[in-house]
Design a protein around this nucleic acid. Structure first.
Length: 337
DNA sequence: AAAGCTCCCCGCCATA
DNA sequence: CTTATGGCGGGGAGCT
């Protein structure tokens, strides 16, 4: 799910533009990464993101308003960034025709790139390149129907603010694009940094109601369906408890079979996936914030044992909890060694 | 370390 | 007819 292999390392991010791109969309994520770099520098950790404006050709690229951006980099399937973000445009179908190089590039790199994201109608580029086949995706609400009609293999979620499907991220609009970038920062450098950046920019990531502020990614996966939403809230408030599917089904007074179906339709997660993500995010946060012993973190998150927690970190991040702490917050105290 | 076990999930079909 | 739900059995991942 998370692509992340090297937390704390430099992340190369290419923001891909083309004539007529939406300036406002491009700038939001760009500033998110800027601010993240600022905070990291202040912490003495150097720059975290190396952001490039990229296009089919280098040089000035006109946006949808009076400003232009200079593409310093030409897209190139040999030198890949860790993350590529394709910006949207108003006349997206026309843009597709005008920029076959971008489609070809996505097509060539979609399986090899760490994170591939599209803002708003930028999702048409991903879809055209086949990167969204069989996957869920979000796009601008006015364009959702067109995306669905044009690419039947894509599961278009018209209600979602942003969607993560494996290494492919898509989002609905400008603010969702900022949330998407914040979620990337959260993945790479932790929730604390993401929230600092959100505060800088004066944006407030959506949160599950009533709960302490939770992961930005998780917030994007809250359903609007009342029963499912209640269940999600309840799960988040009871992570440390035993959360078996039969019990959850009983809470909603429906069969286990139906819970699976409804939950997935509403959240694009199986119940167990959602629970694991929630536990994982909470564990990350506890590990980042305090100096709780791993054993306590394992208990409070509901993983139960350090061993189980370790395996989840291994699977989702490719590193152990200890390595995660070390890379984010410096050495772990000897008491946990 | 390996084998068995448990739990989650899903395809398929029945039912309302 | 379509749509929502439930039951059954199997496959597979992860746990002990």
């Amino acid at each position: 799910m998370n692509h992340l292999a090297r937390p704390g390392a430099i992340q190369a991010v290419d923001i891909i533009v083309y004539p007529g791109f939406k300036a406002l969309e491009a700038i939001g994520p760009l500033k998110v990464f800027d601010h993240a770099n600022g905070h990291l520098a202040a912490r003495g950790k150097g720059h975290g993101y190396q952001v490039c404006i990229a296009s089919a050709r280098t040089g000035m690229v006109a946006s949808d308003t009076i400003m232009s951006l200079e593409a310093a980099k030409q897209i190139n399937s040999l030198v890949l960034p860790d993350t590529a973000i394709v910006v949207g445009a108003h006349q997206i179908e026309a843009a597709l025709l005008r920029c076959p190089e971008i489609v070809a590039w996505i097509s060539a790199v979609k399986g090899r790139i760490g994170r591939l994201a599209a803002l708003c109608t930028g999702s048409f580029f991903l879809a055209e390149a086949g990167a969204l086949d069989g996957k869920r995706a979000a796009t601008h609400s006015e364009a959702a129907a067109r995306l669905r009609d044009r690419y039947p293999a894509v599961t278009v979620d018209a209600g979602a603010a942003f969607v993560r499907a494996d290494n492919i991220w898509t989002c609905a609009g400008v603010t969702a694009g900022i949330d998407l970038a914040l979620a990337m920062v959260e993945d790479d450098f932790g929730r604390g940094l993401a929230l600092e950046v959100a505060r800088d920019l004066g944006v407030c990531p959506r949160r599950p109601g009533g709960q302490p502020p939770f992961s930005i990614t998780l917030s994007s996966q809250m359903s609007s369906h009342p029963k499912v939403r209640d269940l999600q809230d309840w799960i988040l408030a009871h992570l440390a408890d035993d959360l078996s599917t039969p019990m959850l089904a009983q809470r909603l007074a429906m069969s286990e079979r139906n819970l699976n179906r409804v939950f997935q339709r509403e959240t694009a997660n199986t119940p167990a996936e959602f629970i694991e993500k929630a536990r994982f995010e909470l564990a990350r946060r506890l590990l980042e914030d305090g100096r709780s012993p791993f054993k306590l973190v394992a208990a409070r998150t509901g993983f139960g044992t350090e061993e189980r927690m370790r395996r989840v970190f291994q699977r989702r991040l490719g590193i152990t909890p200890r390595a995660y702490c070390e890379r984010l917050a410096g050495p772990v105290p000897a008491s946990q060694a």
